[in-house]
Design a protein around this nucleic acid. Structure first.
Length: 580
RNA sequence: GGACCCGUAGCUCAGCUGGAUAGAGUACCUGACUACGAAUCAGGGGGUCAGAGGUUCGAAUCCUCUCGGGUCCA
């Protein structure tokens, strides 16, 4: 039940009856007509911009339209007042029963409260993490992982058919580096003293892989030339790294539907097919790029190469798909990979990248636009950097020295729930400060705690009820929700009613952080109502001498709990029943 | 040099894709436990939405330029 879309339907109906009566032209587009919560609650329960949006195309005065609309809306028993305000806003008030109906609706839906069919089963592919298989996931990957996973859940909840996908970059030179590094660890496992020159990975995490190589191959690879072991170790090490990465993701409760290998694109004709597809559209040519504008790199020289005319699809310059020596660029397999996604029949693609891949956005969008003839939209979400703090001090890490903070470090220290929630309390395109101490702090300064506390507090009330010998569930089932008429209660109900609408907006804009902020607001409404009971005993949840009132209040807070739980689960955070 | 992201209260950030008097937390000041957890709540002060133009009924939001920070650039 989405009260806002219900009322919007009423508005559209009224507008259509105005058209039928000749008060409005018949060829109007209603898509921009919105019904929203007013910024200031004093204005009413809901506001619509219909009159202002339609004034120009209808060639009429907005206030005149609004007045006609108000007259028709008042015929409904749901609308109790409709006032024209300002330049042509129409402020509506709803009958109290319209609001309270959200409570049983939430209770009946339970964990599915807010689920929407907005996505209409469209197939969406969300690609995220996609970290190189050369080591464990670190903090930056964690943010992308959490964001991508919450986004995927959000879209699923909003009625899309979602595929979660990880692209394994196992085709490039970095996998050779990995294999050589593992070889060194293998030698080490065989008792040799080794050092790690520049261009190898010195991290300790490869020690166990070296051991595993020894277990499998014994001493047969020692003193062998690189050609003898490189291909085998590349395969072996990539597998080992992916096992490690899968385990890391599992720590956050993330499970991918598809792991897609870059390597699988080579030698199978898939890259060639993708480039051919572009070629057939006249978008591939042999040419020379202009030098980069401004400062010229020292070693710049014009080179003939195979180029993709990405400028025809919104890019700034054309992009090479083959180097001058005839080998593929990194871009070519990326094109082939996205071509494959298009061919798998996805209606929408979403890529979650780290901010350092910002430069790829335009060319990737151009490629997908070209490959799908503009049919499949690609949205690319960049997650900005995470800055770590400990005791208020920036926490330094160095990838070169192998001392970076891993996903595992984070989860071990603060837990999966806190890690996930905190990472979602910022827009993806804003940098994030992650303070180890703050995340564990038990105060309202810490949103994880604050929201969990509200959920647990409600549980505590329900527990208290049963301790008093009252069966809360049957009481709630028989509750007369229209007893909930105090302002403090209505305010909570209105916040609950916003949930289905908020969820659709968050899904529409691919912004899971809105869910996190909403949950904080809802928790705040609840804490506020709790405290109101101290000044006004009639607002207390448990009133043993007034069971009917108690029933309605328990129904209310239980619906708050249901909403909090639905939102938390969506973000991958466990709603807890008791604070430690 | 160019591209992308960001700039909102002292600090950390929201702001529902163009709506009404720009909101939270924190910090500061004042107040509320005979209680279902005060791990919370109520109230107060605090703003040139980086700056300047433009678009229109209406701009923190869209466009242009400038300044500042970040990321990237065969």
């Amino acid at each position: 039940m989405n009260l806002f879309s219900d009322i919007r339907h009423l508005v559209i109906d009224a507008l259509q009856s105005m058209q039928a009566a000749g008060d409005l032209p018949t060829d109007l587009d209603f898509t921009n007509v919105a019904v929203e919560p007013p910024r200031d609650a004093l204005h009413g329960d809901m506001a619509t911009n219909a009159a202002m949006v339609l004034a120009k195309p209808a060639g009429k005065n907005p206030r005149a339209i609004a007045e006609g609309l108000a007259e028709r809306l008042l015929a409904s028993d749901v609308i109790t007042s409709a006032d024209v305000a300002g330049p042509g806003f129409l402020n509506l008030r709803l009958a109290p029963t319209a609001w309270t109906a959200i409570v049983p609706s939430a209770l009946a839906a339970g964990a599915d409260f807010g689920r929407s069919d907005m996505g209409a089963g469209l197939k969406v592919n969300v690609e995220y993490v996609s970290a190189n298989p050369t080591g464990p996931l670190h903090v930056g990957h964690t943010r992308g992982a959490v964001f991508g996973d919450a986004l995927a859940s959000l879209l699923d909840f909003a009625g899309y058919d979602v595929t979660r996908e990880y692209y394994i970059n196992d085709g490039g030179a970095q996998v050779d580096v990995l294999a050589r590094s593992v070889y060194l660890r293998y030698l080490e496992a065989n008792g040799q003293k080794v050092s790690f020159p520049d261009g190898t990975y010195p991290g300790d995490y490869l020690k166990q892989v070296g051991e595993a190589v020894k277990t499998k191959y014994g001493d047969t690879l020692i003193d062998q030339p690189e050609e003898a072991w490189l291909a085998e170790l590349r395969e072996f090490s990539t597998e080992a790294m992916m096992d490690m990465i899968r385990a890391d993701l599992a720590q956050l409760g993330i499970k991918m539907d598809v792991f897609y290998s870059e390597k699988s694109l080579y030698g199978t004709g898939q890259i060639e097919a993708a480039i051919k597809s572009l070629d057939e559209k006249g978008l591939i040519y042999e040419g020379t790029l202009d030098p980069p504008k401004g400062k010229l790199p020292e070693d710049w020289e014009p080179r003939q190469q195979t180029l993709f005319k990405s400028t025809e699809h919104g890019d700034d310059v054309d992009r090479p798909v083959k180097k001058s020596d005839g080998s593929w660029t990194y871009f070519a397999p990326d094109i082939a990979y996205h071509y494959d996604k298009v061919q798998r029949g996805f209606d929408q693609l979403i890529d979650v990248f780290g901010a350092d891949h910002g430069g790829y956005v335009k060319r990737m969008k151009a490629a997908v636009s070209a490959l799908s003839d503009g049919r499949v939209p690609l949205d690319i979400k960049l997650t900005q950097l995470v800055k770590l703090y400990k005791n208020g001090e920036p926490f330094k890490m160095s990838k070169r020295a192998g001392t970076f903070v891993t996903l595992r470090d984070l989860v071990d220290q603060v837990g999966s729930d806190a890690t996930r929630f905190v990472m979602l309390t910022r827009k993806n395109d804003a940098p994030l400060d992650f303070d180890f101490d703050k995340v564990l702090e038990q105060s309202k300064d810490n949103p994880v705690f604050y929201v969990q506390y509200a959920h647990a507090r409600i549980n505590s009330v329900l527990k208290k009820t049963s301790e008093a010998g009252i069966d809360a569930d049957s009481l709630i089932a028989g509750a007369d929700i229209n007893l909930l008429n105090a302002d403090a209660e209505t305010s909570v109900i209105k916040k609950i009613a916003e949930w289905p609408r908020l969820l659709e907006l968050a899904a529409k804009h691919n912004e899971p952080h809105r869910v996190a902020f909403y949950l904080y607001d809802l928790a705040s409404e609840f804490h506020s109502l709790w405290n109101a009971g101290k000044d006004d005993p009639s607002l207390r949840f448990l009133q043993e001498d007034a069971l009917e009132a108690t029933a309605s209040k328990l129904a209310l807070i239980r619906s708050v709990q249901v909403t909090l739980a639905a939102g938390l689960i969506l973000l991958g955070v466990t709603p807890i029943d008791e604070m430690r």
